[in-house]
Nucleic acid binder design. Structure first.
Lengths: 359, 359
DNA sequence: GCTAGCAGTCAATGATGTTGATTGCTAATA
DNA sequence: TATTAGCAATCAACATCATTGACTGCTAGC
C-alpha cells in the first residue's frame, strides 16, 4: 500500500520537523512551512490518514503528531534527503586527519571524536576481532636468560606480545629455530586454527610442543579477552546525549547510561551489522534499554578488509541525513589510508557545494 | 580553635546523617537518633554555633543544616568512623580476583569494576606514566626483509612495540648487533633520557644513528600519546552517579558528565595526588566542573613501585569510610600480587568481624 | 546550662482556574 | 470530488493561591 506523493511529502516534512525540534508537529506549522497552497484543514485530513496507517501518533488529543518507528524506517529508506556536508564540517574532518596518524586504532580514536563532534551524538567504535586474521609470523625474542617475548604477527598487524618467564635458560638459537618452525607451520592460516590445528600440523610441531604451548596459552588469553567484548568498544561524547530533551528526565538518562556503561552488552548491538555498509537500528530494534534510541553504524574497510565499525547512538529522532553523510565521508577517508605509512592521500569527500552555515 | 567534644559529636552526626540521606539534618532528628538525653533546643544552640564557625549552612531559614566543605574535611581528618568491610563486601573483592589474572592493566580493569560495584560510585583508574621507567632491553626483530618490529622493554614491562618499514633489506645479524649496542648504551637509564642522551652516549651510538632514530621516533610518538593523557584514564560505572539526588537535575548531570567525557582533563585531577597514599579532594578542590563532587584516590604499589592510581568520583556527601576501606583493601590485594606470575598469595584483608549485612 | 513553648519562616503540595495550541467534524465552496 | 473555513472540544502548560508541616530562633523559666 504505497503512499500518495502528497502523503509522502507530508510525512517527510513531519519527520524533518520533528528531528529538528523534538516538538509534536501541528497541521498549521506544516501548512505554513512546508505545504504552501494547502490549508491546515486539508493537512489534518492527511495526517489523520497517516495516523490510521501507523506512521504517526498523537501524544494526546489536541497535540501535534509524532512519527512512529515505522515512519523513521520509511524515512531513512525512501524519504530522507541526501545531505551533503558543509565546508565547515568537512574542515573539521580534515583538521583531525592533518596530524600524523599511525595505527588503525589511533585512526579510529580520532574519527570517534570527529564523529561525535560533528553530529553531536555519542559515537561508538568497535575494533574488529582477530579470530580470523592470518598468521604472518611468530617470534620468540630472548630478553634475558630466563624470559622471552612472544610476538604474534598477523596480516592485521601485531596482535599480541607477552613476556613469558622460562623455567630454564634457553639459547637464542633454539628460540629462533622454534619460532621459525611454528611460524612456518601456521603461515597464512587464520589465528583460531592455531588453537585447533589439524592432525598433520599437530604432528609436525610435536617436537616443539613446549613452545607451541606458550603460543596457545597466550592466544587463549587473548581470545578470552576478546570474547568478553570489552575494550573493543569505545565511546566518545556520552554527555552529548544529555543535550536532548528526550533525556531531560533523569530516569530515562539513567537507563540509557547503564546500557552505555555495560560495553560488553553494547558490542553485539554495534557489531552484528554484518556485511552491510550501513546499519540503522531504530527503537526496539536497537536493543534492550535503548527503546527510544537509534543506532547508526558503518563498517570501515581498507582494501576490502573491514578494519572497524563505527557509528553513533542518539535519540530516535536522529538527524539521519547528517549522520549518514558523516559516516560516509569518514569511511572514504579511512579507506584511502595507507596503513602503516602515515601519509594521507588526497581524497575527494564530495559535497560542500553550499557555503558554510553560520555556527 | 578546637571544637568541644559535644560539638564534634554533633557535627559528626550531622555529616553521617547527611551522607546517608542527602536531606538537611534537623535538630529534632539529631536529638532522637544520636543525642539521647539532650533536647532539640540544646542541639539547636550547638548547631547555631557550628554554623557560626562555618561548618554548617542552612539551605534556607527553617530547614535543617547541611555540612560545608570544611565540615567534610574535618570529618575525614578526625571525625570519621573507621569502617571495616563486611564479609559480603570482601567476598566481592575476592571473587573478582579468583579468576586468572595477568598484566597489571588487567588487574586494574578488574579492580575498577570491583570498586564501582562495592561503593556504588564511579571509579577512575589511571595508569602510571612511563617517562621514568628504566630501560632494560631494546630489540629489533626482523619480520620480513623489509620490516622489523621494535620492542622496548623497561622494568615496568614492554612499553611499546611498533612495526617499522625499512627502506632497504637489512640482515638479522645487523639488526641484532644494533639492538645490543643501543640497549647497552641506555641500560638502566630512564626512558626519557633516550630522547635526550648526554654527549658521551651520543657519540657512542653515532654509528647506529639510523636505528637510534627509529627508537626515538617511536618514543616520541609514545610520549606524545602519553601526554595527551587519554587512554590512561579509565572510568567504570559512570551511570551510577545518576542514582544520587544531587544529579537529579539534568543540567547538573550534564556538566558533570562533560568533565568525565574529557578524560584528558580528568587526568591531572586524579594524578596529582603525588606521593601520598590517599588523596581526598572535596568540592572546589576537586576541580572545575566538579564543585559538588569529591574525588578520593589511592596509589597502588607493588614492592614500593607505584603501578597505578585508582579512586572514585561521587557526590560531595560521599560515604568516605566505605570508600577508603575499599581502596585500602584493594591496595593490599594488589601489593600482594606477584606481577607476571598470575598466582595470588593469600592476603589478610582485615575487617569483617561482623556478619554479612542483608543485600 | 538546659529545656519547653511559641511565633515566624518557607519549601512542598495540591487544588483551581486560565490560556493557548491543536484537533476532529461539519457545512459551505470551488 | 477535493478543499477549505469555522467552530466546539480537548488537554498540557502555566500561574495563582491556600494549606500543611517541618524547621528555626528566641525567650522565659527550671
Amino acid at each position: 500500500m504505497a503512499l500518495s506523493a502528497r502523503k509522502e511529502k507530508i510525512l517527510r516534512a513531519v519527520v524533518d520537523n520533528y528531528i529538528n525540534t523534538a516538538v509534536p508537529v501541528s497541521s498549521k506549522e506544516l501548512a505554513e512551512k512546508h505545504m504552501p497552497g494547502l490549508s491546515s484543514a486539508t493537512i489534518r485530513n492527511e495526517l489523520s490518514a497517516l495516523e490510521e496507517m501507523g506512521y504517526l501518533v498523537q501524544p494526546h488529543t489536541s497535540s501535534g503528531r509524532v512519527p512512529t518507528s515505522d515512519a523513521y524506517k520509511l524515512y531513512v529508506d525512501k524519504l530522507m534527503p541526501r545531505r551533503k556536508l558543509t565546508r565547515s564540517e568537512l574542515n573539521v574532518i580534515k583538521k583531525y586527519f592533518s596530524a600524523q596518524i599511525g595505527e588503525i586504532e589511533d585512526v579510529l580514536k580520532k574519527t570517534a571524536k570527529v564523529l561525535s563532534e560533528i553530529t553531536n551524538y555519542t559515537s561508538v567504535t568497535v575494533m574488529p576481532k582477530m579470530h580470523d586474521a592470518l598468521v604472518k609470523n611468530i617470534k620468540f625474542v630472548s630478553l634475558d636468560p630466563y624470559s622471552m617475548l612472544v610476538v604474534i604477527v598477523t596480516d592485521g598487524g601485531v596482535i599480541k606480545d607477552t613476556v613469558v618467564e622460562l623455567d630454564e635458560s634457553i639459547s637464542e638459537e633454539y628460540l629462533s629455530a622454534a619460532a621459525k618452525f611454528i611460524s612456518k607451520a601456521f603461515y597464512n592460516r587464520p589465528l583460531f586454527e592455531v588453537l585447533d590445528p589439524d592432525n598433520a600440523i599437530k604432528e609436525e610441531i610435536e617436537s616443539y610442543r613446549t613452545f607451541y604451548a606458550y603460543v596457545t596459552e597466550i592466544l587463549e588469553h587473548y581470545f578470552s579477552d576478546e570474547d568478553t567484548d570489552e575494550g573493543r568498544v569505545m565511546l566518545e561524547g556520552s554527555s552529548k546525549l544529555l543535550d536532548y530533551p528526550e533525556y531531560s528526565d533523569v530516569n530515562k538518562a539513567k537507563t540509557l547510561f547503564q546500557v552505555l556503561d555495560a560495553r560488553e552488552k553494547l558490542y553485539p548491538l554495534i557489531k552484528e551489522s554484518g556485511e552491510m555498509d550501513f546499519s540503522i537500528k531504530i527503537g526496539s530494534a536497537a536493543g534492550g534499554g535503548l527503546e527510544d534510541c537509534a543506532i547508526v553504524t558503518a563498517n570501515y574497510s581498507i582494501d576490502g578488509k573491514t578494519v572497524g565499525t563505527q557509528g553513533v547512538i542518539g535519540p530516535i529522532r536522529m538527524d539521519y541525513p547528517l549522520v549518514i553523510s558523516v559516516l560516509d565521508s569518514i569511511g572514504k577517508v579511512i579507506s584511502s589510508l595507507p596503513l602503516h605509512k602515515g601519509q594521507l592521500r588526497d581524497v575527494n569527500l564530495g559535497g560542500a557545494d553550499k557555503e558554510d552555515e553560520k555556527e
